[in-house]
Design a protein around this nucleic acid. Structure first.
Length: 581
RNA sequence: GCGCCCGUAGCUCAGCUGGAUAGAGCGCGAGACUUCUAAUCUUGAGGUCGCAGGUUCGACCCCUGCCGGGCGCGCCA
């Protein structure tokens, strides 16, 4: 076995080999599509250790019936030494039972590989660019950014673990109107810093206190040079410095969550380099951009709507309601116009793109995917481009919705939440829900009711294991695989669940769903807790059985490996595996 | 009006890309702490998988149409 490290992967190979053998024998016609052949543990473990639907999936295209094919397949599979029984069940499932020794081999593999157990070559070194957060650089991170940040970060780590080369990228929107508003807001604080009474910050500017310090630095740098100068004099330098200061703040906030991007790409630099022009020229040459006039938007009336001719991307060709402008009437780029060039730029350096977006931008998915598909195809090869939409988090405090508005300066910052709740709780909580489902984050609940929180349940399992290993060491027992054949049925159940870790990683990575790791860990922790409690009533089932050094060594070995699995899984989620609670 | 997401136990949610008798936590009922940490465990009750059709050996999962909730529908970002 070349891939002796993961039992499930090995058996996927065994099934394939068995099918090859049937082809060679003429039982099965060659070239059947096996994409739907699955090898997985049955839901009900009484059915066996592994099940495959191969006979049912292939019977029809092979022109035979499931039963007959299953019997032929069973004939092949029973030749394997690890297979203790192969039974046909239901409409044509094949249920396999695997010898205990194979599971013990897997347990040794966990020990041998340690932190690398579960690592996969699935990605075969493909370069994947994961873009996440990309919050406008106009203030500190708030809770609205949190979920996408955590999901994106965990996904990036997961993809790396599954054999991809990952770039974690943050797109800095430093070219739009919002950064001018930032610069104006800072200018007001700048005048204030120089002793002027500016009164309340006017509507439409950012009122946040976090601008005070930036303004003071500007006052120190420029003195009163710009207090009454025209905006055209100071807008650019103020904008540059304010954005830089905001990014420092944002990076610090992200660091609190353990998030670090590899690359911060500037929209302003992209535009300065003429990338959007290049994209526009190509799109025009291929009749994907034309000059046209938009219809007035439906569903809501805009008083000052007037039809204007603009360069439009033909997104209606790709299922969008409307063609979309890439430039404004003043000739500057729309967000979309710059964004398509940005994605094209990313695609030149990567094999695949993944974006994590908030649900409020879901309406723009079609146009950007269409534009990027056209551009990358035009450049020679279409690059896979996925956009994962992360739904809104409703922030609650004692059941009451917390209203957030950046304009009023009234928002819950990420830093506050991390400080109050802790990084591990925030991260794990954000990952115990599939991202496309809306979620409530009740402040009071997450803070106070720690025992309801899955993260503690999982961490507790790890802490228990570590504690046991410490106790064992004190009593002179070390984990050892010398006598692991003495592990019984209950221990094997634990190993079987643990052995699913590698295939779980691959499935989660393929689906781009890091939350599956969190749910798996919860299940594994539950199995560990259940096993532990057997020892309450039956001291002979405890990890440490003082009078039996061999058995104790074997059980501690098992405990150590389960602890390793939990640690590996938590590492993917960016959550600490604690030594004690 | 249109697009995207969601709808699974009283509540909060999983459901491994179409598999076998749909699962877990909380809550409710009954139990287990002179212990390797009870932040745990065991056990019971609780379901028309929003509704109606369709596709096939088989549907919570795919397709169509409704119903309900969320997000969005400027040359904003």
């Amino acid at each position: 076995m070349t891939d002796a490290t993961t039992l499930h992967a090995a058996f996927a190979g065994h099934i394939a080999a068995a099918l090859d053998a049937l082809e060679a024998a003429g039982t099965l016609p060659p070239g059947l599509n096996r994409a739907n052949v699955a090898v997985e543990p049955p839901r009900d473990s009484s059915h066996g250790d592994l099940a495959t639907n191969a006979a049912m999936v292939l019977a029809k295209p092979a022109g035979t019936n499931p039963r007959a094919l299953a019997e032929a397949l069973v004939g092949e599979l029973t030749k394997l030494p690890e297979v203790t029984s192969a039974e046909i069940a239901g409409p044509g499932f094949i249920n396999l039972r695997i010898d205990a020794s194979a599971w013990l081999t897997e347990l040794r593999a966990i020990a041998a590989l340690g932190g690398d157990y579960g690592r996969s070559a699935m990605g075969s070194g493909k370069m994947v660019n994961v873009e996440y957060v990309s919050a406008n650089p106009t203030g500190p991170m708030h809770m609205g950014h949190c979920r996408g940040a955590v999901v994106g970060d965990a996904l990036a780590t997961l993809l790396e673990f599954a054999g991809h080369k990952v770039t974690r990228e943050y797109y800095v929107n430093d070219a739009g109107g919002q950064v001018d508003v930032l610069a104006r807001s800072v200018h007001m604080r700048y005048r204030e810093a120089l002793g002027e009474d500016v009164g309340n910050i006017p509507e439409g500017l950012y009122p946040g206190e976090y601008l005070v310090q930036v303004a003071q630095e500007l006052a120190a740098e420029f003195g009163d040079k710009y207090t009454s100068a025209p905006e055209s004099d100071w807008l650019a330098p103020f904008r540059t410095r304010a954005v830089a200061a905001m990014l420092v703040m944002i990076k610090a906030d992200l660091a609190l969550l353990g998030i670090h991007h590899d690359l911060f790409s500037s929209e302003a630099e992209l535009q300065a380099a003429g990338k959007p022009e290049e994209a526009e020229a190509w799109l025009r040459a291929h009749d994907l951009v034309y000059d046209g006039v938009l219809e007035a938007p439906k569903g809501k009336t805009i008083e000052d709507w007037e039809p204007v001719e603009l360069p439009l991307f033909r997104s209606t060709k790709f299922g969008d309601d409307q063609d979309r402008p890439i430039r404004k009437s003043d000739g500057s780029w729309t967000y979309f116009g710059a964004d398509l060039a940005y994605h094209f730029q990313k695609a030149e350096k990567a094999d695949a793109l993944v974006d994590i977006w908030g649900a409020d931008h879901a309406g723009t998915v079609k146009r950007i995917k269409a534009a990027v598909a056209a551009l990358t195809l035009g450049a020679g090869k279409e690059k896979p481009f996925e956009i994962k939409i992360v739904q809104m988090v409703q922030l609650l405090r004692n059941g009451e919705p917390v209203k957030m508005s950046k304009r009023s300066g009234n928002f819950v910052t990420l830093a506050d939440v991390v400080q109050e709740v802790g990084k591990d709780v925030v991260r794990f909580t954000m990952l115990t829900r599939k991202p496309e489902a809306q979620m409530d984050f009740d402040f009071a609940k997450v803070v106070e009711a720690s025992k309801d929180n899955p993260v503690f349940y999982v961490q507790y399992a790890h802490a228990r294991i570590r504690s046991t290993l410490r106790k064992g060491a004190e009593a002179g027992f070390a984990p050892s695989d010398a006598a692991i054949e003495r592990l019984g049925e209950e221990e094997l159940e634990l190993i079987k669940l643990g052995a699913q870790f590698p295939r779980l990683i691959e499935a989660a990575a393929a689906a781009r769903e890091p939350h599956r790791v969190a749910f798996y860990l919860y299940e594994l922790a539950g199995a560990l807790h259940a096993y532990w409690n057997v020892g309450n009533d039956r001291p002979e089932k405890r990890f440490i059985v003082a009078q039996d050094a061999d058995l104790t060594g074997a059980r501690l070995y098992l405990a150590a490996q389960i602890g390793q699995l939990i640690k590996n899984g938590l590492a993917l989620l960016g959550v600490e595996a604690v030594e004690e609670m």
